[in-house]
Design a protein around this nucleic acid. Structure first.
Lengths: 208, 208
DNA sequence: TTATGTTTTAAACAAACGTTTAATAAATGG
DNA sequence: CCATTTATTAAACGTTTGTTTAAAACATAA
């Protein structure tokens, strides 16, 4: 019977490399990451990275794909769902992002800065581009706005919702410094925000 | 009498380096930028960068300071202004960011990703941390919320305003791909947004 | 055991990096 | 004009980069 003595030793070499790569890439980004950093973080020889994954870039692509799916995959699923109401969807989106980014605060800056550095990879990954405009969510938004005889572009509301949810985590270092806030305070504020976001969205909708 | 024949040749070497550095650093970030890239962009010998600015990092710090002031300096001025009303401030902030980021779309990702990579530099630059909580803007927000017997943290409203304004530019590559949009369409959407943002903020305030 | 395939390691690799040097060219001032 | 400073260049510098190699350690099975 195997006793997992430590997290570092019981997991496979391949998984230890991936885990270390996730940590370092997310912290420093692709260009600032040294393969030596990943090897040290994993407590392994540098050559093993190229033995299991053929290059730094291939390893990065794996992490990037994983993180992109974490960030956008669930949003896509929520937006496409046929059975969920508009209000339910908004609550799900708000809760999903606040929880996700409380657990992984570095995710959005990583995603957006790396995608800007290499937009080609996004196109390769996201095959279905028409998620946004042709989703059930977009349709529900248009119906709701149409009932109000509003000509507002539904994209505005989506950008506002995501902006209100995600932006605090993007600007976290600046905000936290300028607002004299500690980590616990920020977390509490975000938990409060999870509750407020759907209310705010409803307000925006009513006023459109 | 000097005739400025071309933009590249009439400006001083020092300024040409700075201009090239602005362009390349904003495009690629510090770690992915090669000093060779800057020299080529400026059409100059590499050694000149170290002759005028002593190192890559010193040159970067100059650009970073400049961009940080462009991004946060005006916001600070608006928020601190004693004579401006709350609604006026909101209109100024919305217009400022939409116009600024239409002119420099790469600015926010650059700022936030580089600050995350080196938060120490932020503390060194922003001496006055208590801008947010102790600004006239924060005070005006508290008054407005107090009149509504609302216990909402004023920070929430500031984060929402900035998030709604800035986030579309951060997520631009993803949004533009997912919404089948060209540059002109995005610009038009943002111009519309400039008008909508103050209305939305007012709505959020009324509902608090 | 021996033979065979897999995993791990230290060392070496060429290429790219930021920076410095030393010589040259241009500008400046008397 | 010459003398002195300033600006520019090509080359070289020492490191660091990601990757490869070749041998060693380990595991597996006959």
């Amino acid at each position: 019977m195997k006793k997992p003595a430590s997290d570092a030793l019981d997991t496979s070499t391949e998984e230890r490399i991936k885990e270390a790569a996730r940590k370092v890439f997310l912290q420093k980004g692709y260009a600032a990451t040294r393969v030596k950093d990943i090897a040290q973080e994993a407590g392994l020889n540098i050559a093993l990275l190229n033995y299991y994954f053929r290059s730094k870039e291939k390893l990065f692509d794996l992490v990037m794909l994983e993180k992109l799916q974490q960030f956008a995959g669930e949003l896509q699923r929520i937006m496409l769902a046929e059975a969920t109401s508009l209000r339910e969807k908004v609550e799900l989106i708000a809760a999903f992002y606040v929880d996700l980014l409380l657990a992984q605060p570095e995710l959005p800056v990583f995603i957006f800065s790396e995608l800007k550095a290499n937009p080609a990879k996004l196109a390769g990954i996201m095959g279905a581009q028409k998620v946004l405009l042709h989703s059930r969510f977009a349709q529900q938004l248009r119906e709701e706005l149409g009932a109000r005889h509003s000509s507002t572009n539904p994209l505005h509301l989506l950008m506002s919702l995501l902006g209100m949810a995600v932006f605090p985590f993007v600007a976290r270092p600046v905000l936290q410094l300028a607002a004299e806030q500690d980590d616990a305070g920020f977390t509490a504020l975000m938990q409060e925000r999870k509750r407020l976001l759907p209310q705010w969205f409803e307000t925006l909708l009513q006023s459109a």
